[in-house]
Nucleic acid binder design. Structure first.
Lengths: 155, 155
DNA sequence: TCCCCTATCTATAATTC
DNA sequence: TGAATTATAGATAGGGG
């Protein structure tokens, strides 16, 4: 691609890596746009840069909505489980550890001015860990029969 | 891009649209691969073709896991709310309507042999609708103070 | 960082097999 | 469908401001 052929290997130099990423990021973003406008395809693209910044493209379609809903629903999930105080123990201690980690990581990430396109990866990780635990807990609560019935396609 | 300049407008001819989409789909998939190998970027790409088939690329990273977790966690969310029989009404009637719609749509989508890369869009929609309602219900249950505290980055 | 430039590489539209 | 083939449009590495 220009001037020299590029081997598809990780670029080690952080400086040129960042520059090149920014170019290619725009490139693939454009491709995603073209794909959805040309064919009406429902495209969702999420990219975390080496420095932890998220760029995303989501067509105004169904997949996109679902992807956008992801972090949202995970956080609500979290909230709801916190609310269940009267239920059995919610493994609060690991959660506190996660919070420490979360707060530490939070300082590391740079923020983009366009808020609508930004989710902090630390935030997402935090939710992910919590949800993973919540899922395990639910699995104990109710076994997988109904789940299989609900979610598995009839392949 | 070869032989003629292409205007970025929806291609109406279904035949050529499908052919072109298959080519470009592969193209953007390759780009996504390059992006993650070259820069270690965490990339997730989801594309529903005009015929409803999903192609996806997810780097073995954090975003990918989150995206993969999406449908999973939504379905668990659904399951859990179903389990709450003793709680106040869960708006079962709209859910039954959704199920009808879901079953109808299910027949329309073509299945790809690679199961690990497939989520039915109808399935996702179904969960999405349910979760949206669940969220509304939760919002009534507990107001947004804690949520703001939990999820909003300190921009 | 971001934009510009340009040589070169890559993707792909149109076509044939 | 799908796999090659070209010719051309588009993407981009390296460099400078």
């Amino acid at each position: 691609m220009g001037r020299k052929r590029l081997l598809i290997k990780r670029i080690d130099n952080p400086c040129s890596r960042q520059i090149a990423y920014s170019k290619r990021g725009k490139g693939i973003l454009k491709k995603a746009t073209e794909l959805s406008t040309l064919y009406g395809a429902d495209v969702a693209l999420l990219m975390f840069s080496p420095t932890g910044r998220l760029t995303s493209y989501t067509h105004k379609g169904r997949v996109s909505q679902i992807v956008k809903l992801t972090v949202w629903s995970l956080s609500v999930f979290l909230l709801y489980f916190r609310h269940l105080d009267n239920e059995e123990a919610l493994e609060r201690k690991p959660c506190e550890l996660n919070r420490k980690k979360y707060e530490a990581q939070e300082k590391m990430w740079s923020y983009s001015p366009d808020v609508s396109n930004i989710y902090l990866i630390a935030e997402a990780q935090h939710h992910q860990q919590f949800v993973t635990k919540a899922i395990q807990r639910i699995e104990k609560l109710k076994k997988t029969k109904l789940l299989e019935k609900e979610t598995s396609p009839s392949l």
